[in-house]
């Protein structure tokens, strides 16, 4: 049974694409057949982060318009088996996405036996973001520890609950919170919202916390999903997230000693 997962946030620059790349790579290395789709038509980035930008021939919009077949357009990753990228078009805009077109692509991917279809949402709450979330079964809401990002995430949660297909059918999308660029030091100094503050505001289950790390930028620039940087804290945190998503109980790390004690009490079940 394939699952559609949207990586979304409302706000831009919080780490959606980094997360999409790392998460999809993580799922694939666990042996699941995974595809990650870039919904940011016109501002495509996922191919860069995945290091496949020079292998793009056909893109998502070509498939939607019937100009290319899905198999022609999927780029197979060279590092990890079972991992495919469907890049966005850089020369078009979000209007090129049609509901029918997106639905047929997702259905075709499901028929092709993909276990996980990861949708990398663009920022904002307009058409591109809406298309990315509409068909989702689960959502990972990416938030930075600052007030505007948290508020935008609250907004996107509202949209997930009212405008997704699941919601229209009377069900609901399973929500996960992912906090990125977390700096325990700055939380301690009172410059940053704490995990606890964010959970108070958003009230959804915490999937994980990615610490602020230089290796994220480095990995992105090299076109290497950061989860493959097994020595970096961010890479390890993404590994934990994939395990947690797949149902394992993994303790939260990189929140500093004190915070860990507190979170243990909170999530120590």
């Amino acid at each position: 049974m394939s699952k559609v997962i949207v990586i979304t946030s409302g706000k831009g620059g919080v780490g959606k694409t980094t997360t999409s790349a790392a998460f999809a790579t993580g799922l694939a290395s666990k042996g699941y057949k995974t595809v990650v789709i870039d919904f940011d038509v016109g501002l495509r980035n996922l191919d860069l982060i995945m290091g496949v930008e020079r292998r793009v021939v056909y893109d998502f919009v070509n498939v939607i318009n019937g100009e290319a077949g899905l198999r022609q357009s999927l780029i197979k990753d060279k590092r990890v088996d079972n991992l495919y990228v469907l890049p966005a078009s850089q020369t078009r805009d979000k209007d090129a996405l049609s509901m029918k077109g997106v639905e047929s692509v997702i259905n075709e991917l499901k028929q092709d036996g993909f276990d996980y279809i990861v949708c990398d949402s663009p920022a904002g709450i307009e058409k591109g973001a809406f298309m990315a979330l509409y068909f989702a079964d689960e959502a990972i809401v990416v938030t930075n520890p600052e007030v505007s990002s948290v508020r935008d995430s609250d907004r996107i949660l509202g949209i997930l609950q009212s405008k997704s297909r699941k919601a229209e059918e009377g069900g609901s999308i399973k929500e996960h919170l992912l906090i990125t660029r977390y700096s325990p030091k700055r939380v301690e100094d009172g410059e940053m919202l704490s995990v606890e503050d964010i959970l108070d505001i958003l009230a959804i289950p915490l999937l994980g916390v990615i610490p602020e790390s230089e290796s994220v930028l480095q990995a992105s620039n090299q076109g290497n999903p950061v989860i493959l940087e097994t020595k970096s804290t961010a890479g390890q945190a993404y590994e934990d997230i994939v395990d947690r998503f797949l149902g394992e109980t993994v303790e939260h790390r990189f929140l500093d000693v004190e915070k860990q004690g507190f979170l243990k009490r909170l999530f120590g079940k």
Partner: peptide
């Protein structure tokens, strides 16, 4: 029975409203 999120508006005509969770900024 769930949080009222930023950007959402809920209105109970002719009666009370009970929110079992919280209401977000901007709701």
């Amino acid at each position: 029975n769930r949080p009222v999120r930023s950007g959402q508006q809920v209105y109970s005509p002719n009666g009370d409203i009970v929110v079992l969770s919280q209401t977000g900024a901007g709701s």
